[in-house]
Computed example of a mutant assay.
Amino acid sequence: MGMALPKFIIENWSYKDKENKICLKENAPKWAKKEYEEFLKKINPVPDKEGKIIQY
């Protein structure tokens, strides 16, 4: 099963830039900014010291 569409996208607080990257509008509310940061962590995970990526 895939990831659910984030609320910040559903409520139109995002846009795609020229490189087709999902960006957040500058006037987005705090909850949308927090959700956007969490979303980025999910789609761009950082490996640990051993180079492993664990996602739950």
Rank of each mutant, 00 (worst) to 15 (best):
M1R: 09
M1L: 07
G2P: 15
G2V: 12
G2R: 00
M3F: 13
M3V: 09
M3S: 13
M3P: 00
A4K: 15
A4M: 11
L5V: 15
L5C: 13
L5S: 12
L5E: 15
L5Y: 03
P6S: 07
K7F: 03
K7E: 12
F8S: 03
F8R: 07
F8I: 08
F8M: 02
F8E: 05
I9Y: 08
I9G: 03
I9F: 12
I10K: 14
I10T: 15
I10F: 08
I10G: 01
E11T: 12
E11N: 14
N12S: 14
W13L: 02
W13H: 15
W13S: 01
S14G: 07
S14H: 13
S14W: 05
S14D: 06
S14R: 03
Y15I: 02
Y15M: 01
Y15S: 00
Y15T: 00
K16T: 08
K16C: 02
K16D: 04
K16Q: 13
K16E: 10
K16L: 08
D17K: 05
D17Q: 03
K18D: 10
K18Q: 12
E19Q: 04
E19M: 05
E19H: 09
E19D: 08
N20A: 05
I22Y: 08
I22R: 11
I22M: 07
C23Y: 01
C23G: 02
C23F: 01
L24A: 08
L24C: 06
L24S: 04
K25P: 00
K25T: 04
K25Q: 05
E26P: 01
E26K: 13
N27W: 07
N27V: 02
A28G: 01
A28E: 10
A28R: 07
A28Q: 06
A28I: 11
P29R: 10
P29A: 04
P29K: 12
P29L: 07
K30G: 00
K30P: 01
K30D: 13
W31M: 06
A32Q: 10
A32N: 12
A32I: 09
A32H: 10
K33H: 07
K33G: 01
K34F: 03
K34D: 09
K34M: 07
K34T: 12
E35W: 11
E35F: 11
E35K: 13
E35V: 11
E35A: 09
E35H: 10
Y36I: 08
Y36S: 02
E37K: 15
E37H: 12
E38T: 11
E38Y: 11
E38V: 02
E38G: 05
F39G: 01
F39M: 04
F39Q: 09
F39A: 06
L40D: 01
L40G: 08
K41I: 05
K41A: 09
K41Y: 10
K42L: 11
I43M: 07
I43V: 15
N44T: 06
N44Y: 13
P45Q: 04
P45R: 07
V46Q: 14
V46A: 06
P47Q: 06
P47R: 10
P47T: 06
P47W: 01
D48Q: 04
D48Y: 08
D48K: 04
K49Y: 14
K49G: 06
E50S: 13
E50P: 00
E50T: 00
G51F: 13
K52F: 15
I53P: 02
I53E: 01
I53L: 09
I53D: 06
I53H: 05
I53W: 10
I53Y: 00
Q55P: 01
Q55T: 14
Y56H: 11
Y56M: 04
Y56S: 07
